[in-house]
């Protein structure tokens, strides 16, 4: 399924970009926040609650979403813009394989930026009270949500000429504002399912939209469907 030469090529292109450094800074924001907290926490502040806020309000819905979207769009959109996509499309590789590879490479680059940030934030914020589950559940939520975001980004970057604008507006307006007011809207929010996984270990104020098992299924399904739609688009749209 994965076309490894294209995977390596995409990863190389993504990690070489100046943009990735800027995204790295964005990914480092939670670390900075945890650092400030570690240095100047209020007397009697609840470490775990703070870490919970950090993951549920900042990391999953904003940082992870934006990083995954931008990288996911870059993986295909840049090749489309530069015209190098022609060299990939004019090969006997299956369209589904090409898109799956692009999503996989974008996902890898995303996790390279996000996972260290999550781990360091946890270590700083929890100050030694770290147990594996308080990193693993958030990591699982981040991983599956970013997989879904990368899929959506790949599909958007083939279907529209302004994928970043649409994607970022979706993340920050729909997921960030509307879905937090209207419960039914959050059913259409990738971040909400990611948070549902995180909530297994770090409960938030609002009840999660679904349990962890359905959340995994839904996020994986989003990734699979957008991958299939992307492959379809690759054979239909003007490149």
């Amino acid at each position: 399924m994965i076309v490894w030469p294209v995977y390596r090529l995409t990863l190389r292109a993504l990690l070489l970009q100046r943009r990735t450094i800027l995204l790295g800074l964005l990914a480092a924001a939670p670390v900075l926040m945890a650092l400030v907290y570690a240095v100047a926490a209020k007397a009697g502040a609840h470490h775990f609650r703070f870490y919970s806020h950090l993951v549920q309000e900042l990391f999953v819905p904003t940082i992870a979403a934006v990083v995954a979207l931008v990288i996911g769009v870059s993986a295909i959109g840049d090749e489309r813009e530069d015209g190098t996509i022609y060299y990939l499309v004019a090969t006997p590789q299956s369209r589904l394989g090409l898109i799956a590879t692009k999503i996989a490479a974008a996902w890898t680059a995303t996790l390279v930026l996000l996972v260290p940030s999550l781990v360091i934030s946890a270590l700083l914020a929890l100050e030694g009270e770290v147990d594996p589950s308080s990193i693993l559940w958030p990591a699982a939520g981040v991983a599956l949500a970013t997989l879904a975001y990368c899929g959506v980004a790949a599909w958007l970057s083939l279907r529209t000429r302004r994928p970043i604008v649409i994607g970022v507006l979706y993340v920050l307006l729909w997921e960030g504002s509307i879905a937090t007011f209207a419960a039914s809207a959050s059913k259409l929010s990738i971040a909400a399912y990611g948070r549902a996984l995180v909530a297994e270990r770090l409960p938030e104020a609002a009840a999660p939209v679904v349990g962890p098992a359905p959340a995994v299924v839904i996020l994986a399904a989003v990734a699979a469907i957008t991958c299939w739609l992307g492959a379809r688009a690759l054979a239909r749209v003007e490149l």
Binding site: R12, A13, L16, D82, G83, T84, Y86, Y87
Partner: peptide, 8 residues
């Protein structure tokens, strides 16, 4: 147009 990947 479309030159190949410049970093290769």
């Amino acid at each position: 147009q479309s030159p190949p990947w410049p970093f290769l």
